[in-house]
Amino acid sequence: MEENQSMGLMVLALYTLMLFAPFLLLVILLFKKNKEFHDKVLIAWLAVSVLNSFVEFIKITEPPNSIPILLDLNRIFLLSNLFFFHWYLKSLIKSEYKWCNNLVWTLLPSLLWSVACVVNWFFQQFFLKNGQSYNSLVLEYDHYIEWLEVPLIIGVIVIGIWAWSKLKEMLKYEENTSLSIHISNLRKVLLFLVSIYFIVVSWEYCLSKVLQNESIRLVCITFLLWLIVGLVIALGFYFLRQKSLYKKPKHYIYSNKAIEKLFGFIVDIMVNTKPYLNPSLTISELAVMLGETPQKVSEAIKLNTNQTFYSFINKYRVDEAKKLLQDPNYTSYTILSIGLEAGFNSKATFNRVFKNETGVTPSNYCYKVKCKERI
């Protein structure tokens, strides 16, 4: 008997520690400097978790029927976890992800429950004149309401699988060691979160109904609580270390092989079509020729040459000018005419870019390679 009492006190202590963990993490996060957007989402999530923990703590000390309204509110807080779980992951992975319509479906379980609570309150206030206090939906229809948590469980699984596959794809093509660490860190966060949900669901819907022996139940509860507390502590550690992943240039969703292939197309079109001969060529026009977006074309050039679009184009123009300066068919052309033929829009630009690329002016280049003297 005394052993069961000691075990019961340990269970109570572990349960209390688990409930107050969100509050401690919230306090630490509030004092964190240089908060990113995902940190603010996490703060909102933890604030809701603190309210949920507060109600859970009251349930330990008070009979459930004495706090009927809080019981119904507690279910709203619980179901809202799906929304915050989804929003937090999206805010880390998607660039400047603030709000999107596909977040609404994760709010449906908590919204539907909120509507049910309002309807229940309205019905009792205006149709039941028996002087009774508010009757909780949780207490009245507990066996039916358990099924409302099914969307939460399914949603967590679906979002977890989506996020895991996205992180796996990002990690596959990631060469930046620092960002790889943050991707791996988020995978741990995801694993710990899903594990906590899985443990709670396993107990609520399976183990608590199967285990009848009180001693075995206490041992099982103690083990699971130790496991959850450990996961929560680890989760807090990784939460605080987590950085946004979208600061990485967007090529993580456009693989290295695809980038190299696109750059090959860019080189081919430069050699065969010579679009650089157009003085007003823009990256948007080149992107249209390639059937790609300007962002991807710019990224392909930058990653393969470490040059900007205009530096890359001007190099081809300089090479073209060098060929024309030595071409016998262009001996009657002036230096300015050669520059214009090569795609430059002025003599000043031609001289400046040519000297930057070759180290000499066009006139000095002519003297150096012994081509016909031009004005």
Rank of each mutant, 00 (worst) to 15 (best):
I76R: 05
Y238P: 04
T305R: 13
K94S: 13
E285L: 06
S114Q: 05
I181G: 06
F312D: 00
I301A: 08
Q295V: 13
E204C: 05
I338C: 00
Y365H: 04
F85T: 08
V41D: 02
Y310L: 11
G160P: 10
N81D: 13
L107T: 08
I43H: 06
Q242G: 01
H38L: 04
L137R: 08
K355Y: 01
L211G: 03
L42V: 05
A47N: 10
K32F: 03
S298M: 05
Y246R: 09
Y246F: 15
F263A: 00
N101F: 13
I60N: 15
N329I: 05
I93V: 15
V219G: 10
L26G: 00
H143C: 02
K168T: 09
N120P: 09
L193Y: 11
L186T: 15
Y15N: 11
A321N: 03
S91L: 01
T106K: 07
E299W: 14
S208P: 02
L324N: 06
T358Q: 00
F127T: 10
E2Q: 11
F223I: 06
E149K: 10
I199L: 11
L24F: 15
N135D: 13
A44K: 14
T222G: 04
T222R: 04
N120A: 06
L190H: 06
Y97P: 07
L24Y: 14
T16E: 01
E357N: 05
Q132A: 07
I69E: 09
C371V: 02
I181E: 11
I216E: 07
I199C: 05
V271P: 00
L277T: 10
P64N: 15
V158Q: 08
I335K: 08
G359I: 00
I269T: 07
K257A: 11
V41R: 08
F123M: 07
S180T: 00
S178T: 12
A348D: 02
D39Y: 14
R352V: 00
Y276D: 02
G359E: 03
K261V: 10
E320T: 14
N351C: 05
V27I: 09
L82E: 03
V55A: 04
S298G: 09
L224Q: 14
M289C: 04
K261W: 11
A342M: 01
E146F: 14
L225M: 00
H182W: 01
L73Y: 15
I313A: 01
N185F: 02
C206H: 10
S363R: 12
G160L: 01
L235D: 01
N213S: 04
G359W: 04
L70A: 13
